[in-house]
């Protein structure tokens, strides 16, 4: 599924990003690499503070002012985004990479109509500038696609329910035909039923448009519903990477395994939930060796001293663990 010249759409290559703070460097992204071809979808999963959002923000180059990129490249269509000038990057935002935010409830400016805010993006990025009528038609089509009545375009955000606002955000993300869409916990603030509807909608649109999608969530069950590939992050590092089914049924990293077994299943056999013990690692002073070792039930001497490389355990299924053969197989959880 690579682009004609064999290049992937998005390549993140050995990315290292630290936040500079008064207390020292916070290692938010530590040597993360992955790539996505056109039409693929990747889910990033992990606890709060594991670096998922930092990765997303880095792709948009919207990370906080104190973010420092120490190494690595983010290539979109072969072009290193980190090397672009701010002005050049600004022109690529929304047009090349659009984003559905974590707080989509508050993603709308309360004083402008939803239509005006979508139009703002179209005005900025689509050339030659379409006529008022074309813009209107485009927005109506988008609204229909996400299951909203086009008449709602003239309404203000406060007249939308939470789910409707989120649908509208998705419509706005699609408005400039971006190459890549990043959805950062888009359904977290919604109730379970609406969450499910939005997920199905997103999945449908992704398949229909052949859209490339990065979906970020702390909820591994949600990720499984939308994406083909999963990347599990822990303490700023990518610890496991593989196809969704593989990771789900045969996790190769104890952290993924524990994440899965702490999620209840409705359809699978009845089993005891195993809570994930301990606190997430302190990124100001990350643990030596494998960053997960203080919480890992399988940790041995080597885990404390040496850092495991992220390598193929099964072809196409990578994990960074010295003891991946000891991680038990999980039986279909929650999917």
């Amino acid at each position: 599924m690579a682009t004609p010249n064999g290049r992937k759409l998005l390549e993140v290559d050995h990315l290292v990003m630290h936040y500079k703070t008064k207390k020292g460097d916070v290692s938010a992204i530590e040597d993360v690499s992955f790539s996505l071809a056109q039409g693929e979808s990747l889910g990033l999963v992990g606890e709060s503070g594991c670096g998922k959002t930092s990765v997303a923000m880095s792709l948009m180059r919207l990370a906080a002012d104190n973010a420092r990129y120490l190494n690595g490249e983010i290539r979109l269509d072969g072009e290193d985004l980190l090397a672009l000038s701010e002005e050049a990057m600004r022109k690529r935002r929304w047009k090349s990479i659009a984003m559905v935010f974590q707080g989509a409830m508050n993603s709308w400016n309360p004083v402008y109509t939803v239509g005006d805010q979508i139009e703002e993006a179209i005005d900025l990025h689509i050339e030659p500038r379409p006529t008022e009528k074309q813009i209107r038609e485009r927005m109506s089509r988008l609204f229909e696609m996400v299951g909203l009545n086009p008449a709602m375009l003239d309404r203000y955000p406060h007249e939308f329910s939470g789910g409707m606002r989120q649908r509208a955000v998705i419509a706005m993300a699609l408005s400039c035909d971006p190459r890549l869409i990043i959805a950062d916990e888009p359904t977290t603030a919604l109730d379970v039923i609406v969450q499910d509807q939005i997920l199905k909608e997103l999945k449908k649109i992704q398949e229909k448009l052949g859209m490339t999608l990065i979906y970020i969530s702390h909820d591994i069950a949600v990720i499984a519903e939308v994406t083909d590939t999963i990347g599990v992050m822990y303490a700023g590092k990518l610890v496991e990477y593989g196809s969704t089914l593989e990771v789900f049924h045969r996790p190769k990293h104890p952290y993924s395994y524990l994440l899965l077994s702490s999620t209840p299943s409705i359809t699978g056999p009845r089993r005891k939930l195993a809570p994930l013990e301990g606190e997430p690692a302190n990124l100001l002073d990350p643990p030596s060796g494998c960053r997960f070792h203080p919480r890992c039930p399988f940790a041995t001497e080597i885990c404390v001293t040496d850092e495991p490389p992220l390598e193929d355990k099964v072809p196409g299924h990578k994990a960074a663990c010295w003891h991946s053969d000891r991680v038990p197989v999980t039986i279909g959880v929650a999917v």
Binding site: R90, W94, M99, M105, S107, L124
Partner: peptide, 14 residues
């Protein structure tokens, strides 16, 4: 600090 400011930045507004 509002989220819609982040949205505006992500939209690539000047």
């Amino acid at each position: 600090k509002e989220d819609y400011i982040l949205t505006a930045r992500a939209k690539g507004l000047p």
